[in-house]
Design a protein around this nucleic acid. Structure first.
Lengths: 205, 205
DNA sequence: TCCATAACGGGACTCCTGTTCCATTTGCTG
DNA sequence: CAGCAAATGGAACAGGAGTCCCGTTATGGA
């Protein structure tokens, strides 16, 4: 009577298991970028990954489960952050990074699909939240430095400022057909700085 | 040889056809609010609406097509706007309206599903864009009045300001698990005002 | 190196989504 | 109010997504 509840892939995570996971996650990303969330089919992903259909169903169970795993994988690979010494420039760099990501054909489609998946399943939503939490955490220091330099009020919430930079870009990305250009990215950084300076993001406000 | 390309429901839009459309759209809204976009099944919607499954497939064809129709229907029913004479108060009212909508269990789930559907299909995305365009258009006047009063720079883009109010709320709604409260709504209004005053949303900026 | 078994892969099977056909109902027009 | 055809609805059908079974492969530990 062993532990039968152990998820497949957790007892022997190395070798073939790891290769299969990498291939499937890659294939899932490709499929989402090409067809979007709705047309996603686990059998097709298995074919792309040159892996048995049964394996995909056994290890991930559903499309949303697979996306959740993909998101935890994405959260682990972090991107380098700039460090210019100026809050506005740092936030502009962040905004342009987001803008480039969402504008890129493959990445943009991928993010759309991932967001769609997260709205359909609680576990996937948690994975998405964690992904953005790590991204926000990575960029928070540049706000903290601005606070230390006296550019911003003492009790400014760094996370809120970083989120304020991304928010307009994602909002445009999802709810308008206007294209996201660099000027838009710069505006969102400027807006975040203006609001932060005005003390909107202080914790006690 | 008549016009065979005419979509079903367009030649005799009255009577039964209209009743069927209303029943199906209502059922679609219910289904989306309950199960989310992924578990959406046209046969189930037909059952809820007490309508033949064939009818739903013939008139709307797919889940995304149905959502697109639902969105044009939603865009037509407009909500009343406040008129307080103060930009900040107007925008706070707008922000709280959005916050209440997204927080409401049924409406919130519905919007999640609708956004998910829009990421999967170009036609549905267009319908979603038009929906937000009309909403933004409705609220733009209060920004224009603020410009007229001299509260904001001359060439401020009113649409951008309204979008700036909603953006943080939607961003939180989709990418974090933090709950949307009135304080958050007020902050987004304050941030929009601060940025607008700083001239971030002027057209030539 | 060798063994126990975790993990994979193929194929058959089931159920459900979406399509097609045709009879019936019911708007619209004269 | 009468008739034509638009629109609906039921039933049968087809195709594909997801499950199950069991033999095969190869991992991790001794």
């Amino acid at each position: 009577m062993e532990y039968e509840g152990a998820d497949p892939g957790t007892v022997r995570p190395g070798g073939r298991t790891a290769r299969v996971r990498a291939a499937v996650l890659r294939a899932a990303g490709d499929a989402m970028a090409e067809g979007g969330f709705a047309h996603l089919d686990l059998a097709d992903i298995a074919r792309r990954a040159e892996v048995g259909k049964t394996t995909v169903y056994r290890r991930w169970g559903s499309v949303t489960g697979l996306v959740a795993d993909l998101l935890t994988d994405m959260a682990e690979q972090s991107l380098p952050r700039t460090e210019t010494g100026s809050l506005l420039d740092d936030l502009k760099a962040n905004a342009r990074l987001v803008q480039r990501t969402l504008t890129d054909p493959r990445q943009g489609a991928l993010f759309k699909a991932v967001i769609a998946a997260a709205t359909c399943d609680a576990r996937t939503a948690q994975a998405l939240h964690r992904f953005y939490e790590t991204r926000v955490e990575e960029w928070a220091p540049c706000v903290q430095q601005a606070v230390a330099r006296g550019e911003l009020p003492e009790d400014t919430d760094p996370h809120e400022v970083i989120r304020a930079v991304s928010a307009p870009l994602y909002y445009r990305f999802l709810t308008t057909d206007g294209h996201l250009d660099e000027a838009t990215a710069d505006r969102s950084a400027q807006a975040a700085v203006a609001a932060a300076r005005a003390g909107v993001y202080t914790r006690r406000a």
